[in-house]
Nucleic acid binder design. Structure first.
Lengths: 258, 258
DNA sequence: CCCGGGTGTTGATCCAGATCAAATGATTCC
DNA sequence: GGAATCATTTGATCTGGATCAACACCCGGG
């Protein structure tokens, strides 16, 4: 269990010197996406920004009263919970620009815990205020629906990538997913850090940590990637994408190139 | 592939003699949940109701323009798509009172297909109208958020029940899920029909159909259930629940009863 | 600089469940 | 009603990945 000593985010002092939404380079995937300048102005006073938290500190914990939706500003957040038999289950990893907390609306309290895997910072959007504002700004309402829809799609994808896929496919899917998501936020698609441990990747993918390690080594032998500790470099993205589908490199030519 | 000849739902004639939301016994889990009588009145004119469709007919298909969210009125709907390697992937089974289509908001077209597994009927809620109405009725907006939140939670649960669970646990989880959902709609929790094939259960759970069959047989031998073809009777619900967690029947006493 | 614990790698063995195979039981369609 | 097709069950075999085990590596602290 990776719960460190918790200086809860809620208790830390707001940091008012942090960039506004209008100047945030992540606003393209967060709530302001699709809003015009005026609407972003109306959203602004609602946002609460905090100083960064460190590895092991929690954003919220299972059972806390649900109040905020959080957008990751920097770092990585692991969202997890304990199963009935006290095993850690990982719901997801959230990267900069991604939004967490939507799964707790129904229950009224957080149904999972969120912990920083590295020094990370956030913006908090009080959900009840967000709801009110949604009724005034159609574009914002639509954006919230879109973000939640995306979350459903992502979870569905994840679920299906656990079905009928072997270890190599699962790991490839995981790497491609990270690559896409980093790229989408303006980071490198080819080179990034695996901020979570092998054990955590294993739990997330339904594999033993040894299998994760072996699979990464094997992919390195095959010149698809270079892995060194937490750093990953993807050398052959197309080949890695083919691994995901289970189609060999020879299947593409079946569709005539001309 | 189970796509039958398709008389698309959209093309079938509205059936205006079907019960209104206000008198629908499923309204407790659908959009009207939490709305007062006045608000349900406002929702009413927006709903489009159709004659039932038959097994194999589609509600919508991947790529169709996203227009409606559908509530299942009767029957079972399988939501699925084809993977890159043309294998069927099953996103979920939807029972009476359950709502489908939320995963297609973001894309603007349906990202999956929905097919009836038995004679089934629906109500359609045009999403753009629903969005508008949400801005007038706070309780409706909140309910839409709740329904989507539930969908995220459900998908998360499903994802996690694929991780680190063995075949017996997966099948138990699946049966309990159906049991709970039927009960929630006022049907029997103990006795119901498995409207999907063993193959479909297998795809959904990430198991070979033979494993599904064997596991059900094994559970019958253990007097947990009786399975006859599509009919299931659960004899020992608590024991089945214990199977889900992987905890033996002896673990509960570890927590002092007094 | 060395020590210690956490994290990652690699090797060896074993088993749950996939796959292959065949028989039987349903259901549909003339 | 009967043939044809499909769904399900059950058996036999094989294998990918879990598990057990040992070792290497890295990093922080004294």
């Amino acid at each position: 269990m990776s719960i460190g000593c918790a200086l809860e985010l809620q208790k830390s002092a707001p940091a008012r010197d942090i960039a506004l939404c209008s100047s945030c380079r992540l606003s393209g995937t967060c709530f302001p996406q699709g809003l015009d300048t005026d609407d972003v102005q109306k959203l602004e006073p609602l946002v609460r920004r905090f100083r960064p938290i460190h590895r092991g500190e929690h954003v919220f914990r299972t059972g806390d009263k649900f109040q905020n939706i959080y957008a990751v500003r920097s770092g990585t957040v692991k969202v997890y919970r304990l199963s009935a038999d006290f095993e850690e289950q990982i719901i997801g990893f959230y990267l900069p620009g991604e939004v967490l907390g939507f799964n707790s609306i129904e229950q009224g309290e957080y149904v999972c815990s969120a912990v920083a895997l590295e020094t990370s910072s956030f913006c908090a959007f009080p959900f009840s205020l967000l709801e009110e504002l949604c009724r005034c700004i159609p574009a914002l309402q639509h954006q919230v629906f879109r973000l939640m829809s995306k979350e459903i799609v992502f979870s569905n994808e994840m679920m299906m990538s656990h079905c009928g896929k072997d270890a190599r496919q699962k790991v490839a899917i995981f790497l491609i997913s990270l690559s896409n998501r980093y790229q989408h936020q303006g980071y490198s698609a080819r080179e990034f850090r695996l901020t979570m441990s092998r054990r955590e990747v294993g739990i997330y993918l339904g594999l033993a940590l040894e299998t994760v390690s072996r699979t990464l080594s094997r992919m390195q032998e095959d010149n698809l990637i270079t892995v060194d500790r937490k750093s990953v470099i993807i050398h052959d993205l197309p080949a890695l994408q083919q691994v995901c589908t289970g189609l060999g490199p020879d299947v593409i030519p079946l569709i005539p190139v001309n």
